[in-house]
Design a protein around this nucleic acid. Structure first.
Length: 744
DNA sequence: TAACAACGCTTTTTT
DNA sequence: AGCGTTGTTA
């Protein structure tokens, strides 16, 4: 192939900066790419260019993306641009999937077998709980979630248990460290790794085995990293270790879109990049090809409230388009109704449903919209909701397979040993735990021994025996049968399918349906091993984009995506910015929430609707007023430049709450005036209930309770009343459960 | 001792 | 509304 102009057709659609970013191939390159500036296009074209101009083979390119989805899309685009086969760029993927691949090859170097299992968050938590129970540590004082969080953080910083220094006074941290140590030992024993280990083990291999490191360094002639602002310390180290001496490393990032600091991501990596690699070339992509001017300006006005920005000037050639709508609703149901009205009455005529998305801060917020859409029959899909592979029936099925494949997978054993019910309850399980600890054997081996002894009740013994016999049999079958047939046999012979059929509930039907889906997705893998080794990193079964459906997802999940129409509901103080994040990290967190809001706004191409409700319901509906909370519009709404907005107060009651006069000096006390008013209004509501109740009930009043019967008030504490019941004595009861009756 | 019912506490974001 | 813990039943 010669280097004619025709061969470089792929450059024709690029602007000057983009072209430069593609053609500057040698030496370190930092691309600061604003939202919608075509960075994916640049990356794919760059990969194409490297291959087409014969600078290297596709197999010599390391290209790291943030999600599997992004990797798949990029692979497809490169494929069609280079007209090559599917595996032309084998080292294209996420840090985790590439690490997985490396680790399967070099597992022995870190004391694992190549068949290791990747644990998901639920498995992790379960293991931590088991360790806590075995060591008699109070779960209330040491929440497993917190420990998991700490372990994850340590791993993101590249710290092994031996490398962590603690002060003796920090009780909970010391506890967590002890658990961390045991946790790692247990993982090794079960031949398992967690997400963090994938990266961490690779780093130790690169560090301790120079031949392996050098072979990768030699092979990877060019490295590309997407979403560099969201890489963390250990990932950065991982990269540094295998970057070759020619330093052909190109990173793409946007400091304004850094939204994963809670996962250890450091924007600092962008700033340090120029320090780490001397003679770094920096290219800024500032022209936006996605959004209308009104949308883009709205986004810019918001993000200008953040400090410490690298400073890009995003601009657009596009029309101003329609102004951004700010809609106010009285409650969440109104918000969902209003949203579906806009879609049905207006958008549906001009846009495909696939091009309409509702982006929320927290996953549970999609529910109100789902209910509405079901009610009126608008088709929708929830992206990244409950992960397919985390559904209980899918996990059950996978654990059967995991256990058949690896008898030492104690977590899998524990999960399925009594599912379906086999009369193997807590007591038996405890025995298995204890015995396996004492004898240093896994649960499967321990069960075999217990079956020999007289420790178990006959009924339990019999069903455990049957299970073990089945497992051994399935293991044998796994060598002859295809993996799909094996699953069918297992579900059948274990009684799992029957259990679901017997339930006769809609949920059980859905579960059976999901198992069918699992079966068909297994067909995409050649055998059981390939399947088990890859599903853990797979989040969902690929979405079907063929049907016309409205998309519901979290803002985090929308990263990297774009849609014609975007709805951003729930912009209320406490929800967005989220209260938890403010409590934990104060202003730093508010800035990250603001970046999240910026990401959300910049997903929109043509139409954008931001909304909030004045009253919000929490925790499902118990049909009383206790779960209602009045809410203030988010401070972010006040920060948007009104020039680009249409403000629409739909709900009558929201006027007094909705003001655009909040000043922005909340950096001092980390709370905006809006927040202050919000908390005050909450207190006020509580106070009103409280005084009303006091006027209703007086000392000595005779009352009636549904379950406790009749009694007399003998003490009043707020709305909690101490009652002396005739039949059951003194009890503390909330006033609203009481009825006044005539005094006797 | 296991299965089932009731209660109460919780909800950020994810590879 | 959904889960895990506690209390009650068979």
């Amino acid at each position: 192939m010669n280097m004619s102009v025709v061969d470089q057709d792929y450059l024709n659609t690029l602007n000057n900066q983009q072209k430069e970013a593609v053609l500057y191939t040698e030496g370190p390159l930092l691309i600061l790419a604003g939202a919608g500036s075509g960075k994916t296009k640049v990356l794919t074209t760059r990969v194409t260019h490297l291959i087409q101009s014969k600078k290297c083979f596709g197999s010599q390119i390391l290209c790291v993306t943030f999600t599997n989805k992004a990797a798949n899309e990029m692979r497809e685009r490169v494929q069609s641009l280079t007209q090559s086969n599917a595996n032309s760029v084998p080292w294209l993927g996420t840090f985790h999937s590439i690490s997985n691949k490396i680790l399967r090859k070099h597992a022995e170097a870190v004391g694992l077998k190549p068949s290791f299992t990747i644990l998901d968050t639920l498995d992790q938590l379960k293991l931590i709980k088991n360790i806590l129970a075995a060591e008699n540590i109070d779960v209330k004082k040491n929440p497993p979630k917190l420990i998991a969080y700490l372990i994850d953080h340590w791993k993101n910083k590249g710290l092994l248990p031996s490398e962590i220094k603690t002060s003796a006074s920090d009780y909970s941290k010391n506890n967590a460290l002890r658990i961390y140590k045991t946790y790692q030992e247990r993982l090794k024993l079960m031949n398992c790794v967690d997400f963090g280990d994938l990266i961490l083990h690779c780093v130790s291999i690169f560090r301790n085995f120079s031949e392996i490191r050098e072979s990768f360094k030699r092979n990877f002639k060019y490295i590309l990293v997407d979403e560099f602002q969201d890489t963390n310390f250990i990932q950065n180290l991982w990269l540094n270790l295998i970057t070759s001496d020619t330093k052909n490393i190109c990173v793409v990032g946007d400091d304004d879109q850094s939204i994963y600091s809670w996962r250890g991501a450091e924007v600092k990596n962008i700033l340090d990049f120029e320090k780490n690699y001397s003679n770094t070339k920096t290219i800024k992509l500032e022209q936006n090809y996605r959004s209308t001017k009104n949308i883009l300006n709205t986004a810019s006005s918001l993000i200008s409230n953040n400090d410490d920005r690298l400073g890009k000037k995003i601009w657009s050639d596009f029309d101003p388009g329609e102004k951004v709508w700010i809609n106010s609703y009285s409650d969440g149901r109104d918000e969902a109704t209003g949203t579906s009205d806009i879609i049905e009455k207006e958008l549906i005529k001009k846009f495909s449903l696939n091009n309409i998305s509702i982006l929320v801060r927290a996953a549970f917020q999609t529910r109100e919209f789902e209910e509405r859409f079901i009610r009126i029959g608008l088709p929708y899909r929830v992206i990244g909701g409950v992960k397919f592979y985390e559904r209980s029936e899918i996990k059950d099925a996978l654990c059967y397979l995991r256990l058949i494949y690896q008898k030492n997978d104690d977590l899998a054993f524990e999960r399925i040993v009594n599912t379906p019910k086999r009369s193997i309850g807590d007591t038996t399980l405890k025995k298995i735990h204890e015995f396996s600890r004492i004898n240093n054997k896994n649960f499967f081996e321990t069960s075999l021994e217990l079956l020999d002894g007289n420790e178990l009740k006959p009924k339990t013994k019999q069903s455990l025996k049957l299970l073990i016999k089945n497992l051994i049999n399935w293991s044998k079958l796994s060598e002859q049968l295809g993996h799909v047939e094996l699953l069918e046999r297992v579900l059948d012979e274990s009684g799992y399918t029957q259990m679901l059929i017997n339930e006769k509930s809609p949920e059980a039907d859905a579960r059976l349906e999901n198992l069918k889906e699992l079966r068909s997705s297994m067909k995409n893998y050649p055998n059981l091993i390939e399947f088990l080794e890859n599903i853990s990193l797979q989040t969902a079964i690929d979405e079907e984009w063929d049907d016309e459906k409205i998309n519901l997802m979290t803002i985090h999940a929308a990263k990297g995506l774009e849609f014609d129409c975007i709805f951003l509901p729930g912009w209320e103080e406490g929800m967005f910015p989220h209260q938890k994040s403010i409590e934990e990290k104060g202003d730093v967190a508010v800035q990250e929430e603001r970046r999240l809001a910026y990401v959300a706004i910049t997903r929109a191409k043509k139409r954008l609707f931001i909304s909030f409700a004045s009253n919000r319901k929490f925790f499902g509906n118990k049909n009383d007023n206790n779960d209602w909370m009045p809410s203030m519009p988010s401070r972010f709404i006040d920060e948007l430049d009104k020039k680009y907005l249409n403000i629409n107060e739909i709900a009558e009651n929201s006027h007094q709450d909705f003001e655009f006069s909040q000043d922005n000096n909340f950096t001092e006390n980390k709370r905006s005036p809006g927040w202050e008013r919000y908390t005050k209004s909450r207190e006020k509501i509580k106070t009103i209930n409280y005084t009303n109740n006091l006027t209703d009930f007086k000392m000595g009043q005779s009352v009636q309770h549904e379950t406790f019967g009749n009694g007399k008030i003998i003490h009043i504490d707020g709305n909690k009343l101490l009652i002396n019941f005739k039949s059951s004595g003194e009890k503390k009861v909330i006033d609203k459960y009481l009825k006044k009756i005539a005094n006797e």
